[in-house]
Design a protein around this nucleic acid. Sequence first.
DNA 1: GGATATAGTTCAGAAAATGAAATGTCCAGA
DNA 2: TCTGGACATTTCATTTTCTGAACTATATCC
Lengths: 152, 152
Amino acid sequence: MNTPIGLDTDGLEPELRALIGVFSLYTYIDTNMRQQGDDCGGPNLERKVLVKLDRPKRIGTLARDLDALPSTMTTVADQMEARGLIERMRDPEDRRAWLLCLTEKGHQQRMETVGLAHTLLHETLGLSDDEVEAFAQISLKIHLKIQELNNG
Amino acid sequence: MNTPIGLDTDGLEPELRALIGVFSLYTYIDTNMRQQGDDCGGPNLERKVLVKLDRPKRIGTLARDLDALPSTMTTVADQMEARGLIERMRDPEDRRAWLLCLTEKGHQQRMETVGLAHTLLHETLGLSDDEVEAFAQISLKIHLKIQELNNG
DNA sequence: GGATATAGTTCAGAAAATGAAATGTCCAGA
DNA sequence: TCTGGACATTTCATTTTCTGAACTATATCC
């Protein structure tokens, strides 16, 4: 008997395992980000924005990608700007739009988040380099596809 | 020149790619769940609870795993109970605690979410069976490890 | 049995998200 | 060039969600 009460996780459909895993990992990373002492104690959306900002992005784009209203994103941008994490710059291609850019402080914070991810994946969760690489590969492929769908 | 302005995603550290991917996929799935017409329009936590409830779980356990306060989880449980998705049952092992159990309706809803994940991963995102399986494998390993850490 | 810890609930106040109306900019066509 | 409509963002009042402290009920330890 190898199933100690409701734990036969291996027999599950792969889609369900992926679903459970992604929810778990996301929540776990987000929880740890919140507790990271730094300036990550704000609303959930702030942390999503921080991760998203690999380069300057429009408020509207972020709102769409993060499933938030433009008005919500305005508030989040205000807060992050007040804390010195981002700056607003007019989009040279469309002067109605703002680009949110990470400041030096914001960039540092983002790097610390990557460091946290590193620690969690390797040390805390005990994944091998190969496992992280394999996971990263599919993750990024999924991300790029989602990006493509959102833009299309 | 293969990098059309700030898109050299392949050179990124695997931890960052994993981070970005997980945030993207989580947000994408959650967004689609919200819009799934069903009874998924409530707060974010409800959807997390729905996915978490592979078997009856205590309110306190869910609160801890989902990084919420017990009082918040009480509210969420009230709402889900009012909508007929879950039932409270006294934990036979500790009569202070409640076990949240999916009702038939709740179970159906959860299955629909799995169906959504299936559609998204395969059809929308265009992943192969092998890719989904590989992703599911590491995802679940991560999930189990997180569970272990939370329980420890 | 009695003190203390734990599981969950209640409720008032704080924080965050929503939606509609407003501002300033772009763009297509007369 | 001028004009009307579309679009990006903001503002603000309202609603929804979360927080934290006080409380009830059960468990555990001595």
